[in-house]
Design a protein around this nucleic acid. Structure first.
Lengths: 234, 234
DNA sequence: CGACCCCTTGAGATACCTCAAACTAAGTGG
DNA sequence: CCACTTAGTTTGAGGTATCTCAAGGGGTCG
């Protein structure tokens, strides 16, 4: 498919204790002593767009924490097209099903270069045995996935194409906390919103003509948050 | 709204040990001794269509196991309309977020008369502390929710209206294990599939004219599974 | 400079939505 | 027991949004 598949970059064993985003991540609740339970290496791996963290159907051997970048969870349809069912951002966890010994249910592919921590399944299981807090954290993560899945359905797969695009933009800006918004390929946008590539392109182009979006760089836009909220609401 | 709201029927305290669907339910892995940890009453409650198990935003005080019937999880949109994000069938669990002490994220309403077991939040938590198997079961349930949410998006919110209806019918027949299919109101169908009531009605009517569906009673149909599979695939 | 990829734009076909009316079935009250 | 109401389903007709197919830019990279 893609001949420009890039080699996975390995950055070395992670130092969870000093992790800059630990308060966001799966290990946020761990105490100093808990780290003793980690008996297998946790690798820091950088993935580039086009190379998957894992593929649908692969045996689930590890969980990934996303530290930087953006990762899409993809499911392929009967006709070969893809539907993106979730987006993982820094602090999110990919492949939780591995903890249950199940095969991966999606293919996870970075949309932007993404730095991840690869945590072997057994490490999570052993930690979970030892610390109740880890259990709570895992359940919290699962619930977060459910919540995002529901939000995806109600806000990105409901209403007209313009409203969907507007909601996606707001979501990417943390509901308008910032004006800047990094976009991605129109095909991926379409796969998220359940519309065709052309429709996604048309809507973005229209927003730009109307001054709601101002291009600041390659796929980087300055957004009129208020206007977007108006369109998203309708 | 509904003046014919029916009183919740209480059937008495549940006997989990003898439960006929225990192998399906949340307590499937419990041992005889584990039942000693149950210190609060688990009630059997029958809900009728129109009376909710719980409402979105209510504090999550209990988890429900569905024993019979069919329950919809609803989220309301800005314009007041509803979107059904999941269906619970016998053996499924509603309101898992209560275990985490969170508010309910949906409104749960039976589509058909449904017998449920109401399990107080503290009972689940206490059981989880005592038995690791309960932990595993909870995580399994959460993962099941995620899986259903993803399936809902990819199979009921993707493709044309005819394909969506066909997939919904197959889903209700356990992917074609039985030919019989109990349907519900067209408005609910629309809310599941992300189409209008009229479109849902038109598709069902068309299927009936084409002989794919044969009415056997009020909202009870005999289905041509093969034909549906063909339509669902396209 | 040419090849390639992706985004954009166009024009026609189509599916779905909207609004509105007719029909059905079940419940209500005279 | 029958008109009358009410809620839900079905059907129609017209408008509109999205899809499909196709062609034309604008970068980037060899």
């Amino acid at each position: 498919m893609r001949d420009k598949a890039i080699e996975d970059a390995w950055r070395g064993q992670a130092e969870c204790r000093k992790c800059g985003i630990r308060e966001l991540a799966l290990f946020s609740d761990l105490q100093e002593t808990d780290f003793g339970h980690i008996h297998l290496p946790i690798d820091e791996i950088q993935f580039e767009p086009g190379s998957a963290l894992y593929h649908v159907g692969d045996p689930g051997v590890a969980v990934f924490t996303v530290r930087t970048g953006l990762v899409k969870l993809v499911r392929y349809l009967a006709d070969g097209s893809q539907r993106i069912v979730r987006l993982l951002r820094p602090g999110d966890t990919a492949g939780l099903e591995a903890v249950l010994g199940q095969d991966y249910e999606h293919t996870a592919i970075p949309l932007r270069s993404a730095l991840t921590c690869r945590i072997p399944r057994e490490v999570v299981n052993r930690l979970a045995e030892g610390t109740p807090r880890m259990h709570a954290q895992l359940m919290q993560r699962w619930q977060q996935n459910v919540r995002q899945a529901d939000a995806w359905l109600t806000s990105l797969s409901t209403g007209g194409a313009k409203a969907r695009v507007a909601r996606l933009l707001l979501l990417l800006m943390d509901d308008g906390a910032t004006r800047e918004c990094a976009l991605f390929g129109r095909e991926d946008m379409g796969a998220m919103l359940g519309v065709t590539t052309e429709t996604a392109s048309r809507v973005v182009a229209e927003f730009r003509r109307e001054g709601i979006l101002a291009e600041k760089g390659p796929n980087l836009y300055d957004c009129d948050v208020e206007a977007l909220r108006l369109i998203a609401g309708a």
